[in-house]
Design a protein around this nucleic acid. Structure first.
Lengths: 84, 84
DNA sequence: CGTGTAAGGAATTCTGACACG
DNA sequence: CGTGTAAGGAATTCTGACACG
Protein backbone atom coordinates (compact mmCIF):
# COMPACT_ATOMS: atom_id res chain seq x y z
CA UNK A 1 0.00 0.00 0.00
CA UNK A 2 3.05 2.19 -0.21
CA UNK A 3 2.76 2.65 -3.93
CA UNK A 4 1.98 6.19 -4.95
CA UNK A 5 -0.68 5.64 -7.55
CA UNK A 6 -3.65 7.91 -6.87
CA UNK A 7 -4.45 11.36 -8.13
CA UNK A 8 -5.71 13.92 -5.67
CA UNK A 9 -9.23 13.49 -6.96
CA UNK A 10 -9.32 9.89 -5.76
CA UNK A 11 -7.88 10.89 -2.40
CA UNK A 12 -10.57 13.53 -2.14
CA UNK A 13 -13.22 10.89 -2.65
CA UNK A 14 -11.66 8.36 -0.29
CA UNK A 15 -11.20 10.86 2.53
CA UNK A 16 -14.09 13.21 1.95
CA UNK A 17 -11.71 16.13 2.35
CA UNK A 18 -11.10 18.95 -0.12
CA UNK A 19 -8.15 19.17 -2.47
CA UNK A 20 -7.23 22.35 -0.66
CA UNK A 21 -6.94 20.51 2.63
CA UNK A 22 -4.92 17.68 1.11
CA UNK A 23 -2.49 20.05 -0.56
CA UNK A 24 -2.19 22.08 2.59
CA UNK A 25 -1.11 19.07 4.64
CA UNK A 26 1.66 18.59 2.13
CA UNK A 27 2.63 22.22 2.38
CA UNK A 28 2.99 21.67 6.11
CA UNK A 29 5.26 18.70 5.46
CA UNK A 30 2.89 16.17 6.92
CA UNK A 31 2.55 14.05 3.80
CA UNK A 32 4.88 13.49 0.88
CA UNK A 33 3.16 12.53 -2.35
CA UNK A 34 5.29 11.87 -5.39
CA UNK A 35 5.02 13.77 -8.63
CA UNK A 36 4.73 12.81 -12.25
CA UNK A 37 7.07 14.45 -14.72
CA UNK A 38 4.33 16.95 -15.35
CA UNK A 39 3.96 17.79 -11.68
CA UNK A 40 0.81 15.86 -10.86
CA UNK A 41 0.70 14.53 -7.29
CA UNK A 42 0.50 10.80 -6.64
CA UNK A 43 -0.64 9.34 -3.32
CA UNK A 44 -0.54 5.91 -1.71
CA UNK A 45 -3.13 4.22 0.46
CA UNK A 46 -0.78 4.92 3.34
CA UNK A 47 -1.00 8.58 2.50
CA UNK A 48 -4.77 8.37 2.54
CA UNK A 49 -4.68 6.84 6.00
CA UNK A 50 -2.24 9.48 7.16
CA UNK A 51 -4.39 12.27 5.77
CA UNK A 52 -7.38 11.00 7.69
CA UNK A 53 -5.36 10.87 10.89
CA UNK A 54 -4.09 14.39 10.35
CA UNK A 55 -7.60 15.63 9.83
CA UNK A 56 -8.71 13.88 12.98
CA UNK A 57 -5.93 15.49 14.96
CA UNK A 58 -6.89 18.89 13.64
CA UNK A 59 -10.42 18.24 14.81
CA UNK A 60 -8.97 17.46 18.20
CA UNK A 61 -7.40 20.87 18.39
CA UNK A 62 -3.86 20.21 17.27
CA UNK A 63 -2.07 22.52 14.91
CA UNK A 64 -0.35 21.08 11.87
CA UNK A 65 3.12 21.99 13.08
CA UNK A 66 2.57 19.85 16.14
CA UNK A 67 1.90 16.84 13.98
CA UNK A 68 5.31 16.67 12.38
CA UNK A 69 7.82 13.83 12.77
CA UNK A 70 6.23 11.31 15.12
CA UNK A 71 2.87 12.92 15.15
CA UNK A 72 0.62 10.24 16.50
CA UNK A 73 2.46 8.90 19.49
CA UNK A 74 2.76 10.21 23.02
CA UNK A 75 0.96 13.42 22.40
CA UNK A 76 -1.49 15.18 24.69
CA UNK A 77 -4.81 16.31 23.37
CA UNK A 78 -4.99 20.08 23.46
CA UNK A 79 -8.30 21.75 22.89
CA UNK A 80 -7.26 25.27 23.86
CA UNK A 81 -4.42 27.33 25.26
CA UNK A 82 -1.60 28.26 22.96
CA UNK A 83 1.00 28.82 25.65
CA UNK A 84 2.56 31.90 24.26
CA UNK B 1 -6.69 -4.19 -3.91
CA UNK B 2 -10.07 -4.10 -5.58
CA UNK B 3 -10.36 -0.36 -5.35
CA UNK B 4 -10.31 1.35 -8.70
CA UNK B 5 -7.97 4.22 -8.02
CA UNK B 6 -5.35 4.43 -10.78
CA UNK B 7 -5.31 6.37 -14.00
CA UNK B 8 -4.16 4.61 -17.13
CA UNK B 9 -0.82 6.38 -16.93
CA UNK B 10 0.03 4.62 -13.68
CA UNK B 11 -1.08 1.29 -15.10
CA UNK B 12 1.15 1.92 -18.07
CA UNK B 13 4.12 2.41 -15.77
CA UNK B 14 3.30 -0.56 -13.56
CA UNK B 15 2.83 -2.95 -16.46
CA UNK B 16 5.19 -1.51 -19.03
CA UNK B 17 2.44 -1.80 -21.63
CA UNK B 18 1.05 0.96 -23.81
CA UNK B 19 -2.19 2.81 -23.17
CA UNK B 20 -3.34 1.43 -26.48
CA UNK B 21 -2.88 -2.13 -25.28
CA UNK B 22 -4.59 -1.46 -21.98
CA UNK B 23 -7.59 0.16 -23.62
CA UNK B 24 -7.79 -2.62 -26.16
CA UNK B 25 -8.08 -5.27 -23.49
CA UNK B 26 -11.04 -3.38 -22.15
CA UNK B 27 -12.56 -3.18 -25.61
CA UNK B 28 -12.30 -6.96 -25.75
CA UNK B 29 -14.14 -7.19 -22.41
CA UNK B 30 -11.20 -8.66 -20.55
CA UNK B 31 -10.96 -5.92 -17.94
CA UNK B 32 -13.53 -3.55 -16.52
CA UNK B 33 -12.14 -0.29 -15.21
CA UNK B 34 -14.53 2.19 -13.68
CA UNK B 35 -15.02 5.72 -14.95
CA UNK B 36 -15.07 9.12 -13.35
CA UNK B 37 -17.96 11.42 -14.15
CA UNK B 38 -15.78 12.89 -16.83
CA UNK B 39 -15.06 9.53 -18.41
CA UNK B 40 -11.55 8.92 -17.13
CA UNK B 41 -10.73 5.25 -16.54
CA UNK B 42 -9.86 4.01 -13.05
CA UNK B 43 -8.04 0.72 -12.44
CA UNK B 44 -7.35 -1.44 -9.39
CA UNK B 45 -4.25 -3.41 -8.51
CA UNK B 46 -6.27 -6.47 -9.43
CA UNK B 47 -6.77 -5.00 -12.86
CA UNK B 48 -3.04 -4.46 -13.17
CA UNK B 49 -2.40 -8.09 -12.33
CA UNK B 50 -5.06 -9.16 -14.79
CA UNK B 51 -3.59 -7.00 -17.53
CA UNK B 52 -0.21 -8.58 -17.07
CA UNK B 53 -1.73 -12.05 -17.27
CA UNK B 54 -3.60 -11.13 -20.42
CA UNK B 55 -0.46 -9.84 -22.01
CA UNK B 56 1.36 -13.02 -21.06
CA UNK B 57 -1.36 -15.13 -22.63
CA UNK B 58 -1.15 -13.12 -25.82
CA UNK B 59 2.57 -13.75 -25.86
CA UNK B 60 1.76 -17.42 -25.57
CA UNK B 61 -0.29 -17.27 -28.71
CA UNK B 62 -3.81 -16.89 -27.40
CA UNK B 63 -6.26 -14.48 -28.94
CA UNK B 64 -8.15 -12.09 -26.71
CA UNK B 65 -11.50 -13.69 -27.36
CA UNK B 66 -10.17 -16.93 -25.97
CA UNK B 67 -9.34 -15.23 -22.71
CA UNK B 68 -12.87 -14.27 -21.80
CA UNK B 69 -14.84 -15.59 -18.80
CA UNK B 70 -12.50 -18.02 -17.00
CA UNK B 71 -9.47 -17.19 -19.02
CA UNK B 72 -6.67 -18.62 -16.98
CA UNK B 73 -7.84 -22.08 -16.02
CA UNK B 74 -7.86 -25.29 -17.97
CA UNK B 75 -6.63 -23.85 -21.19
CA UNK B 76 -4.19 -25.32 -23.61
CA UNK B 77 -1.29 -23.32 -24.86
CA UNK B 78 -1.72 -22.71 -28.55
CA UNK B 79 1.18 -21.34 -30.50
CA UNK B 80 -0.24 -21.89 -33.97
CA UNK B 81 -3.10 -23.36 -35.89
CA UNK B 82 -6.36 -21.51 -35.98
CA UNK B 83 -8.56 -24.45 -36.77
CA UNK B 84 -10.91 -23.27 -39.51
C1' DC C 1 -3.97 29.05 11.17
C1' DG C 2 -6.71 26.22 8.15
C1' DT C 3 -9.64 26.45 4.38
C1' DG C 4 -12.64 28.38 0.33
C1' DT C 5 -12.59 30.24 -4.17
C1' DA C 6 -11.98 32.29 -8.98
C1' DA C 7 -8.23 32.46 -12.71
C1' DG C 8 -5.36 30.89 -16.20
C1' DG C 9 -2.30 27.52 -17.74
C1' DA C 10 -0.49 22.83 -18.23
C1' DA C 11 -0.56 17.74 -17.94
C1' DT C 12 -3.34 13.81 -18.75
C1' DT C 13 -6.83 11.19 -20.84
C1' DC C 14 -10.53 10.36 -24.25
C1' DT C 15 -12.55 8.94 -28.77
C1' DG C 16 -12.56 7.72 -33.64
C1' DA C 17 -9.79 6.91 -37.48
C1' DC C 18 -6.14 5.35 -40.53
C1' DA C 19 -2.24 2.10 -40.93
C1' DC C 20 0.16 -2.47 -40.91
C1' DG C 21 0.66 -7.40 -41.41
C1' DC D 1 -6.04 -9.45 -34.81
C1' DG D 2 -3.31 -6.57 -31.86
C1' DT D 3 -1.01 -2.38 -31.74
C1' DG D 4 1.06 2.37 -33.26
C1' DT D 5 0.10 7.06 -34.20
C1' DA D 6 -1.50 11.97 -35.19
C1' DA D 7 -5.72 14.99 -34.12
C1' DG D 8 -8.72 17.65 -31.54
C1' DG D 9 -11.38 18.07 -27.55
C1' DA D 10 -12.44 17.47 -22.66
C1' DA D 11 -11.49 16.36 -17.75
C1' DT D 12 -8.27 16.94 -14.18
C1' DT D 13 -4.70 19.10 -11.68
C1' DC D 14 -1.39 22.87 -10.73
C1' DT D 15 0.19 27.36 -8.77
C1' DG D 16 -0.26 31.88 -6.66
C1' DA D 17 -3.35 35.01 -4.75
C1' DC D 18 -7.08 37.12 -2.14
C1' DA D 19 -10.40 36.33 1.64
C1' DC D 20 -12.01 35.13 6.42
C1' DG D 21 -11.77 34.70 11.36
Amino acid sequence: MEEKVMNIGVVRELTGLSERQIRYYEERKLIFPERTKGGVRKYSFEDVKRIQEIHQKLQDGFRTLELKKKPFVGQQVRLSGNGG
